[in-house]
Design a protein around this nucleic acid. Structure first.
Length: 854
RNA sequence: GCCCGGGUGGCGGAAUGGCAGACGCGGCGGACUCAAAAUCCGCUGUCCGUGAGGGCGUGUGGGUUCGAGUCCCACCCCGGGCACCA
């Protein structure tokens, strides 16, 4: 056929553009979305013979139409599902909705509508958005937290935990609004300590609440982090949250100021302290109890009682947040008790103080204070005029108060003025001294090594309506009684009214509350609290394996088939809570025999994508700076939007929306369309001769590059490579010499396959037109032929003293001698050498030769 | 303060110790058009030079190496996490 003239010199192109159908995402995208749904392209059964994998995006809260964060999340997840499917795997890709929660309840209070209606509407909106993005899921497996069948099994799990002692009732200090008679979340309390809604002064109240005993798993939750392929950041955050701390607990008898036993106290009046620096015990010049410590009341001396009571009362009215804040005058945050305790290392009595920053709930609620080596203790000692003893030798030039570094111990002698048989730490470094001091205590039965965790048990009670009811009854005779398993699910009543007080309607609904005790048959009251929604999301990934199960939350075999999740994808904001709770629940269910015993971790690999910012701040409804994904889908199409998200940045980084190059992505897809549309082939200069080696090699190289970029989550690089390839292919196909038809077709088909996970609609359409009856997403992922990745020639970079001076084409298999010869023959090199012989020539065939002259 | 990341054109960013700036955005010039949009082509780190060409360039200062954006040491800046948890 005759060569087609260059388009810019002929009006053939113009005629062609009018004749050839334009790329119209508005037509293509809905068609293929229905196709995937109707053909069940991405439905997988539990007995699928292919190798299995499980790709999961975090359970979304249904807040209505998808926002950009969703789009970003689902684009990565969907790409992975489609990619792995093309690689021959059966990919479980389910979707569901974390549909309990406060927003629906607040809407109910505002509008009087039942939260279920509101929630179901939001779910349909979100589902529609997700579909329009091109996300493909096995919708047969959909779960919703508020569905009675899901409630049933959440409650069943709660009762299993209760039976095993992992769910218990305990006291917790909560923010109580005395006007609205309700518990408030920390965010509902204003900085001045009044309630956001009622304006009442918020009180701290100890109320009985339900807890899950996650602290039983602290050690495992910490240890098992090591085996996970998670972002380091998230692992570190989990470690910090668990807060493992090794130390020593020991006891100090309460005495009088002279170190003698106090007649007014029982013999077992001892202060038990926890320390991580037992090596500095000789420097303990006072000790501090939490104001709520039970011993305070016993040991306080009459002349200090009034002051101590006032101080304790003041602390009780201080929120935990304020107690933990660094602000404030230390002198006002502590209080003397008049009591003394004997330091076992020195035999001397040290004064006992109270301080609000010492928490009753951590360690023993009492600390030994070593002002010499602890800055906080140093500040406190300074404020109260307490003696400071240095027990670790300061390095030369050290300035400042406390010294917490290493060094030889001083002032820590075996025998002191009071104590004969002591412990000698002088001269020892910190690590050794810790060991010696601990052994000394243990040998004398005075203390023992202990491990403390910062992690607290999980408070799951919520005084809310729109959550999973806690399936417990309170019977006057029998106490706490679990609802019998065959009476599950316990569902909240529908005939409820939402009052603006914020109080859950469950708390005053007699029909719900009043029931009969299954044990004694007497009257009983239902628990009116519901569960934290994190309980729902701590096991949904297990339910996805077997959402049809009616006799158990899931069948163990089904979970064995799919779990653990191979790739979990979501936002970094869930780095601690959701991920910790899900890990705990998996371990607990595994131990209870509900989940397989070998399933110790739910998520093998985790990917956390960055957030999206607009004008430098997080895009959010409350800030009103939203870019609506649907508007972009309506104009440029979902494929362009997806490509924009994929190409803008490395996926884990935060994205400024302004940086997303939608125009470039749209242009690119138009180019792909014109390249691949069969009727458009006339534009290109294609001949029937033998295929050009170059194009074929470039195609194989592209496969190799895109595949490796996919495997390391460098989607922006993968897209860039495809764009460069299209630029080159266009140029070649338009050139005078043209390209072979077979090479062109292979290049275009390969390109479509590589783009199929990223831009699924346009590639599906083009593939169907090029290969009638076939579906691109059912094709195998292309493989690069290693032989085709080796170039025939290479560009030899010639350097002189490390600077690039010339480039020479050499055969790819040129050896060192050939490269050296070629380099020395270069005119530029000859000129630069000026007749002198090089001192040295370093050759790395066939890429580089460096001629060294000095 | 401690622990992680990260500093590369006007911008987002590429680059197994071997051609810095791929690809995209933006900008400039051009083709097509009555015009615009769309599309297409070319240029686009910086300085010197009419040009060919050359100098300088990956936060700063040292070092290792034939060769450093990449490795090592020190420092500066930015982002994130933790922080009276004894």
């Amino acid at each position: 056929m005759p060569a087609v003239p260059r388009p810019d010199t002929d009006d053939a192109v113009e005629r062609h553009d009018e004749a050839v159908e334009r790329y119209d995402p508005q037509v293509i995208e809905p068609h293929w979305q229905s196709y995937w749904q109707e053909h069940g392209t991405y439905q997988v059964d539990n007995d699928d013979p292919r190798p299995r994998s499980y790709v999961l995006c975090m359970y979304p809260y249904p807040s209505g139409a998808a926002h950009m964060g969703h789009v970003r999340n689902y684009t990565f997840g969907d790409l992975l599902t489609r990619y792995r499917t093309m690689r021959g795997e059966a990919v479980l890709s389910p979707m569901g909705f974390d549909s309990f929660g406060l927003p629906a309840e607040n809407a109910a209070i505002r509008t009087g509508r039942h939260p279920r209606e509101f929630t179901d509407e939001r779910i349909e909106e979100l589902r529609s958005s997700i579909t329009r993005i091109g996300g493909v899921y096995d919708w047969r497996r959909e779960v919703r937290s508020h569905d009675p069948s899901y409630i049933h099994w959440t409650q069943w799990i709660f009762l299993k935990l209760f039976e095993a002692g992992l769910a218990y009732r305990g006291y917790a200090t909560v923010n109580w609004d005395p006007v609205d008679q309700t518990v408030l979340a920390n965010e509902q309390v204003l900085p001045d300590g009044t309630a956001e809604r009622s304006g009442a002064v918020v009180e701290q109240r100890d109320l009985e609440q339900w807890f899950l005993r996650i602290t039983d798993y602290a050690e495992q939750l910490l240890d098992d982090l090591d085996g996970l392929e998670w972002p380091e950041r998230v692992v570190v955050q989990q470690r910090n949250w668990i807060g493992r701390s090794e130390g020593v607990e020991f006891e100090m008898p309460v005495v009088d100021a002279d170190g003698r036993p106090r007649a007014d106290l029982p013999e077992d009046a001892v202060v038990r302290v926890f320390t991580t620096r037992v090596d500095t015990s000789f420097g303990m010049t006072f000790c501090v109890l939490a104001p709520e410590h039970p011993l305070v009341d016993v040991i306080v001396t009459p002349e200090h009682r009034e002051q101590v009571d006032a101080f304790a009362a003041r602390t009780r009215s201080t929120s935990e947040v304020d107690r933990l804040s660094v602000e404030g005058d230390l002198a006002a945050r502590g209080c003397a008790t008049g009591a003394w305790a004997r330091n076992p290392f020195t035999g001397r009595a040290v004064p006992v103080y109270l301080a609000d920053y010492v928490l009753g709930s951590y360690g023993t609620g009492a600390v030994m204070a070593v002002p010499g080596e602890d800055q906080r203790d140093w500040d406190f000692a300074t404020a109260f005029g307490i003696e400071i003893v240095e027990t670790v030798q300061r390095p030369a030039g050290f300035e400042g108060g406390a010294y917490s570094g290493d060094g030889p111990h001083v002032n820590s002698p075996a025998a002191g003025p009071v104590l004969e048989d002591g412990c000698d730490l002088n001269g020892l470094d910190v690590a050794t001294a810790k060991q010696v001091a601990a052994e000394w205590l243990v040998d004398r039965g005075l203390g023992e090594a202990v491990v403390n965790y910062r992690l607290r048990d999980w408070l799951v009670s919520r005084q809310r309506f729109w959550g999973c009811p806690i399936p417990i009854l309170h019977c006057d005779t029998c106490g706490i009684v679990p609802v019998p398993l065959d009476e599950l699910p316990v569902l909240a009543p529908d005939d409820v009214e939402f009052t603006p007080t914020g109080q859950s309607p469950l708390q005053s609904h007699e029909g719900f509350l009043s029931t009969t005790c299954p044990t004694c048959g007497g009257p009983a009251r239902r628990e009116s609290d519901t569960m934290d929604t994190f309980v729902d999301s701590s096991w949904y990934f297990l339910r996805f394996c077997d959402p049809w199960s009616a006799a158990a939350p899931f069948r163990r075999e089904a979970v064995e088939t799919w779990m653990p999740v191979d790739q979990y994808i979501g936002g970094a904001e869930h780095a601690v809570l959701h991920l910790m709770y899900a890990r705990f629940m998996t371990k607990a269910l595994s131990d209870l025999g509900v989940a397989p015993p070998e399933l110790r971790e739910p998520f093998r690999r985790l990917f956390t994508q960055g957030m999206i910012r607009l004008d430098g701040t997080k895009m959010s409804k409350s800030k009103g700076n939203l870019v609506a994904p649907e508007e972009i889908i309506d104009t440029l199409g979902a494929d362009t939007l997806r490509l924009g998200h994929l190409s803008v940045k490395p996926p884990e980084e935060d994205v400024d929306w302004e940086a997303v190059g939608l125009e470039g992505c749209a242009r690119f897809l138009h180019r792909v369309w014109r390249l691949a549309l069969p009727e458009a082939a006339a534009v290109w200069n294609l001949h029937d001769g033998a295929g050009a080696e170059d194009l074929s090699r470039a195609t194989h190289r592209l496969v190799d590059e895109v595949t490796s970029a996919f495997d390391r989550w460098s989607y922006h690089v993968a897209v860039a490579r495809c764009m460069a390839f299209v630029n080159d292919l266009q140029r070649a196909a338009r050139s005078e010499e043209g390209v072979s038809r077979s090479g062109f077709d292979h290049a275009v088909d390969t390109l479509l396959l590589l783009l199929a996970p990223a831009a699924p609609h346009v590639t599906a359409e083009l593939w169907a037109r090029r290969h009638p009856g076939e579906h691109v997403h059912e094709q195998a992922w292309p493989e690069a032929d290693p032989a085709m990745l080796v170039e025939a020639t290479a560009t030899l970079v010639v350097q002189v003293d490390g600077k690039v001076r010339d480039r020479i084409e050499v055969p790819a298999d040129a050896d060192e001698a050939a490269c050296t010869a070629a380099a020395l023959a270069s005119e530029k090199v000859v000129a630069l050498l000026g007749g002198a012989a090089p001192v040295r020539v370093v050759a790395r065939p066939p890429k580089v030769v460096n001629v060294v002259t000095s």
